[in-house]
Design a protein around this nucleic acid. Structure first.
Lengths: 348, 348
DNA sequence: TGCCAAAATTAAATCGTTTCAATTCGTGAT
DNA sequence: ATCACGAATTGAAACGATTTAATTTTGGCA
């Protein structure tokens, strides 16, 4: 089939149909084609059908760049998560995506890998795309940058961290309470020497969970909480920190570990059993997030549950609200974490 | 700071600087600004610096839509995976992303959720964006569609499935061999009644793994392989299929299960232990993919390892090759899967 | 100093869609 | 048959960057 314009050379891909080709084929003007697509009510049923037939026949696919350029905005929303390999974030993303899909808004998923530099790269990318909004779980010290982005008319919602300023809406769980629940549970079981493993502290959630751990220990006689700061929060980090913990002189060795997420907890568990340390008899273990794999671990791991999908969905809703009405009030819904006790603390 | 154009109303976001503003500020023409950014060699060091200073001062962010429209292509690459919640795919994506990032190519990550309809939506989206290339693990019967897309000048590489036609390059592991290895292992341990759990069969990998299972059983006396087809491949599906398996009359009950991926295997394991069935004594279990969580399951799960990250990296390389030279030869590297035996088949 | 080639800069055209304002069409009332 | 009026359609002007071809500047050399 020959289109309006010729291919320029043998290797060139076949010229792609554009509105003008569709218009010609349907015997109408380009403006009408556009209307048929974007304002069907402004076009007679008859032409609408004719246009759609032409589109079908030519396999027309609209050029989103041109559309965006003209419309001055992009329906798409960008999301930057700390670690796409962490099922917790996969769930949050799913929650957001389901919600956005219903509004015809594509979700662009970016991964900072807990790396501040990559985070900035992703932000710039989204900015260049002129996305309507950004969902982000920050790694680095990026609030100023986000304010700038908002200035430019891109809505921002912070995920999984209570935004200090009332500049942006945010969705979070009460991490301090979560940390407290975890350590309270360990204390209730009679543990006293508690190691917190996770990091970096720069990530707010981590700091809050640690803080909560301290809170819980504060009132209890003989309870002490020590921190092992890790660079990232994957099982690798958990294994390494555990080796450090086991290298401690016998009397300094903890009788419980609170890992600030379940990936770390899994790493801890692996390394403990590799070293013949019994869980929970010798060392009790509790994680955070309650990812599905925590329940099916060698020793099912106690954890603090966050409603991941729900958080993603709520964040998406807030973002869309902020996009559609930039003056809409900011909100900071805080979800409540819950203890899920399993064998890694309870034993059999 | 006042920019070249006025904001149109109180609620309008501050007008965003564009090349012409930068040009004015730097005292050069827009063309020079563009050159400073895209062809630094064509511009004197002095002006280059001046332009960059102006960009800095105005906080200029280029409009990617305009750029793309003019340049007629998008550096970005789209990727569609079956299930972003499956750590296997997260790893494949990571492999691809790392590779692409080095070439300044953004990766747009899409999730079909094993749903043919969403797959088509994602494809259309990428097409509208005029991405340079697409990496896809197909769900539905989408080869014709992909051919059409390639026609239009978008490179395509199939991930984790050997493309039948030599139309596109593909990256895969030998799933039939993988299936054979899995079941051979079970047979070697003396198991004879083997259930394969996974699906849908429409997904090629599943069919191949099943086929391999049959191959292995073919030569062995008394060996039989039965299939439980599931709609998706998550642990939910594994649990449900397992209930069906356990409902079988005693003498039809299998003595081994081959789950076509590890998520399913984890579901199977959960349901088996919930029902008091011992693994591996009563029923041995083997999965596929060797995701990190398989090793740390209640009973560490034997699995068939695929080099996920490497596959992603290789796919990205092939795609870039196809983008840069559309006439480059198609390739079908096939990775070799490996058995990783753990307690779920070996016992202690 | 004057001339020329190379380097640096620029004006203007262009990418493909949507939108605005203007025009044409269709229908029912007079 | 004419008119009025809303509905349907359209031509042309945007959107903001990059690129091409043309112009100006620079600097080396006679």
């Amino acid at each position: 089939m020959v289109l309006g314009r010729e291919a320029k050379g043998i290797l060139r891909p076949m010229a792609v149909a554009q509105v003008r080709d569709v218009a010609a084929r349907a015997g109408v003007s380009p403006a009408t084609v556009s209307n048929a697509l974007n304002h069907p009510d402004k076009v007679s049923e008859k032409t609408r059908l004719r246009v759609h037939r032409a589109i079908e026949e030519l396999g027309y696919v609209r050029n989103d760049a041109a559309r965006q350029l003209r419309q001055q905005h992009n329906l798409a929303v960008g999301m930057i998560v700390l670690d796409i390999g962490n099922p917790f974030f996969a769930d949050v993303a799913r929650g957001a995506e389901n919600n956005l899909a219903a509004l015809q808004r594509p979700l662009l998923l970016g991964n900072s890998s807990q790396n501040a530099e990559r985070e900035l790269t992703q932000l710039r990318l989204f900015e260049e795309q002129r996305v309507d909004g950004i969902l982000i779980t920050p790694v680095g010290d990026v609030l100023g940058r986000l304010a700038q982005i908002k200035q430019r008319g891109i809505a921002v919602v912070i995920v999984d961290r209570e935004a200090g300023a009332d500049q942006f809406s945010s969705v979070s769980t009460n991490d301090r309470l979560g940390g407290r629940l975890a350590v309270q549970h360990l204390l209730d079981l009679g543990r006293r020497r508690i190691s917190v493993i996770g990091g970096p502290q720069m990530i707010r959630q981590v700091a809050h969970r640690h803080q909560g751990a301290q809170d819980a220990a504060a009132g209890v006689d003989g309870a002490q909480v020590s921190l092992f700061d890790t660079g990232t929060m994957d099982s690798q980090a958990g294994r390494e920190a555990t080796r450090a913990v086991l290298d401690l002189p016998r009397h300094e060795r903890p009788d419980a570990v609170f890992a600030t997420n379940d990936l770390v907890a899994l790493g801890v568990l692996q390394e403990l059993s590799r070293s013949g340390v019994r869980v929970p008899e010798d060392i009790a273990l509790i994680g955070y997030d309650d990812i599905q794999f925590a329940a099916s671990a060698t020793v099912p791991i106690s954890s603090i549950r966050q409603p991941a999908q729900e958080m993603g969905a709520r964040a998406a809703k807030l973002l869309v609200a902020a996009i559609e009405d930039p003056s809409s009030a900011v909100e900071h819904p805080v979800f409540t974490p819950a203890l899920v006790a399993r064998e890694s603390t309870l034993g059999h």
